[in-house]
Design a protein around this nucleic acid. Sequence first.
DNA 1: GTGGGCCGCCGAACCGATTCGACTTGTCGG
DNA 2: CCGACAAGTCGAATCGGTTCGGCGGCCCAC
Lengths: 337, 337
Amino acid sequence: MNIGEIARRAGVARSTVSYALSGRRPVSPATKRRIQAVIDEIGYRPHAAARALKEGRTRAIGLVIPPASLLLTDMQLGFVASVVEAAAHADLDVLLSPSGGDHDRSFERLISGRRVDGVILMEIRLEDERVTRLQQAGLPFVTIGHTARPQGTCWVDVDYATLVARCVHHLADLGHRTVALINRSTELVAAGYGPAHRAQAGFAEAVRRRGLSGMNVPCADNPAAGEECFEQLRERHGEITGIVTVNEAALPGIQRGIERAGVAVPRELSIAGVAARHWAEGFRPQLTAADVPTLEMGTHAVDLLLERIATPDGAPRHLLLTPPISLRDSTGPAPAR
Amino acid sequence: MNIGEIARRAGVARSTVSYALSGRRPVSPATKRRIQAVIDEIGYRPHAAARALKEGRTRAIGLVIPPASLLLTDMQLGFVASVVEAAAHADLDVLLSPSGGDHDRSFERLISGRRVDGVILMEIRLEDERVTRLQQAGLPFVTIGHTARPQGTCWVDVDYATLVARCVHHLADLGHRTVALINRSTELVAAGYGPAHRAQAGFAEAVRRRGLSGMNVPCADNPAAGEECFEQLRERHGEITGIVTVNEAALPGIQRGIERAGVAVPRELSIAGVAARHWAEGFRPQLTAADVPTLEMGTHAVDLLLERIATPDGAPRHLLLTPPISLRDSTGPAPAR
DNA sequence: GTGGGCCGCCGAACCGATTCGACTTGTCGG
DNA sequence: CCGACAAGTCGAATCGGTTCGGCGGCCCAC
């Protein structure tokens, strides 16, 4: 069931079959029909490897995800899903590669084995050796999130600094004077994870501008940590009336803490944040939040990558998204003293 | 940077380079060293497509996942992660293919484009056309979960019927007389989703054997549905003292319902279930449950697949796992009347 | 009637690896 | 001293596509 077999059965040359399928040269309607009939009959499809070898491109992209041992957050999962979706739409296959840990063989295979035409990188660090590696290999790539020197690369990101700042402004507008940021974990910040850094920076700046008193609280990415974090906050800093959170995975824990403490939201305490819509709407009461558009981001990443594959020497394009804050039920006027 | 270039620089024939790398024929130590030196210098790796073309295998496997629009449950995510992990360990690449919905092009590309050496299928239905398609294509495959006629295929599955039955027996042993099963959604059952069917069957059988009164309650895969489901159960069937659940995604909602209703677990109500350990331990109080060994299952699936690829005509092997029930804090003696 | 141009198709080269048969050495035994 | 044998290497064929140059036949214009 190769192209030669099709050609034989249709009584033409292999090249004619190829041209009939690709349309790169005219083929008479009669011949085209005969070829198509044979193909329909035996269900032929070009051999991907043979085509890749000759064409010099694989019609596949790589998606580099955090190592599997760490559980993916819902947001990361959303990216993966949307990238896969968008790629399928563009008739591209997606090769999954865990990176970090001891999985660098997989990453290396992807790159130097020329298995893919381009790569999408998730969970970028401010200094990221994978970016360096891809640059030196000359393989087109797009990152979700950006490094410390974002100019030279293509990326899609959410403007955490601005979004967190907007949350702070929103709370300040409602009269809150003392607010806290529940950030990602200390380890992530130490590892140079951009969103955590930028959230912190945006928070600090907005707090300063509005003359509020604010504190930055690190929190691991899981419900238990969220609950503990919330309890400590209540215990030690009872004066806080507004919370901003960028830690999606901690939300269920925060909610649990709130309910156990019997705090009324938003009457006694307001909460705003940055989260995937799915999580914001799952929160009780529904969370006022900037909804991270994971689906759009995956689509954009694939689009940018395709563009870059087509013109590798074009100017690198970026996309910094600033989704609007959806006002839901978790924020309200600051309680009277 | 192809094998010819290496050969040229090392002053040998291309075939010699190939033999030096594969070791399929003896090459003198001196030549081998010279070749290795050149390779180390310019960082050569064989071109995956060329190798695949000649060898007739791609060193990649396909992983067919539910369509991305549906959010993956934590358990499904665990499978994906463990398959990717295990594959990386065996130096295999993983091609992701969403299936169902309008994504069948992607599935078809995988198969007839011979992009992969084998396929792992998730979320199998009792009657599944993808299985039929793979069989007729003669492509080795392993399913996670099994169809109505499991004899002819390779699969790895969790014995839902037995596990649910064990939960029922556990509750019965503790003196509970009226129990409910919180199952997956009505749609899934209607679509012929095996685990939901088998959970129901196992529950019914165990309830009958122990002479309990029991009811089967369908529930969608999300927290909100879980909460509603729990509330209805309390409202209409207050006599229930034991709950068995196989609906992982509903757990947070169930927990919320319990807390809002102020029910004491396990004093007033016992809960047991089947869930990934991660979820069972995240439940408050920690959930007595059969921990679905997602990590093991992915590893086994890859192992079975590799075996099948090596000997496509061997007898199909299955693996039906029955993990033990971990006794945690959510079950206790039935309350006295 | 003949030359030019175009349409439709064919044959061969090529992509980068693997693998088989054959060839050149060198060594050892008879 | 010559033949057998083994070790080490080379050249060519092959996998299944795509693509380039060329060739035959037909139509049309001069």
